[in-house]
Design a protein around this nucleic acid. Structure first.
Lengths: 124, 124
DNA sequence: ATCATTACTATCCAAATAGATAGTGACTAT
DNA sequence: ATAGTCACTATCTATTTGGATAGTAATGAT
């Protein structure tokens, strides 16, 4: 597999290239939610309790740039903006499912067996 | 999905937890190769032309710690060390396949259509 | 004696990613 | 007048990740 150059950056293999679009802590969780339903900015933030505004808006912007989601603004006050997944965005759902299944399996594995002390944090 | 605590770190969702084991630039490429066959340290390095010794040995160490690969040392000089994928390691192959397929699809998409100027870099 | 081989460690540094905190604009309700 | 709502933006700082470079140990070959 020869190197692949895209937007001035070298990618060494397809995995790395894929992660350019869906990598980072928040992109997959956001897409996962938007695959369930269209949501407003504030709803996504509530659904992802630990995300900061900076991360949320920057990640939404990148997802929109790559056409994995769309942004629809309503001319209202206070503002209303809705985000939806696109056809291209749906392409990544199988990827998220695979990673999610693996993560869930690991959680059970680690949560029920070994010494890493599994814990569900108290309700904040 | 409540938070999950593992080795003093909080994970917000299964995707993030999964990425703790298989995230980073090199872990999936290494597992992918070792799934094809057992390899010596130097062979892996050749197969992944851009990796540095530091990255390779640190990633191998983490993969071994998580029991995704095994390390076998032969008492020879010069040293010989062989790495193999484990049963647990094979659990992540479907994940890699999903991400790889997505990456390949994106490469074709970007490589054949849009303005990002697709290029195969010349031989190094 | 010196070099080559192999699988590593040890430092140091740069870049990328993430997080905390505060502020903005336009209108509505009190 | 003031506070609240919503979807952001701007700074600043901290943490994580990745990479360059050099060095080590044990032995056999020249």
């Amino acid at each position: 597999m020869p190197d692949f150059i895209y937007e001035h950056k070298v990618y060494y293999n397809p995995v790395e290239f894929a992660m350019h679009f869906i990598g980072g802590t928040w992109k997959m969780p956001i897409l996962w939610r938007l695959n369930q339903r269209t949501m407003r900015y504030g709803e996504i933030r509530k659904a992802l309790p630990h995300i900061t505004d900076k991360m949320l808006s920057s990640q939404l912007k990148e997802l929109e740039k790559h056409e994995l989601i769309t942004r629809k603004v309503y001319a209202e006050v206070p503002p209303r903006v809705e985000y939806s997944i696109t056809k291209k965005g749906k392409d990544v759902i199988p990827v998220i499912e695979a990673i999610r299944n693996y993560g869930l399996k690991k959680m059970k594995e680690k949560g029920l067996k070994e010494g890493g002390k599994p814990k569900l944090s108290p309700g904040k």
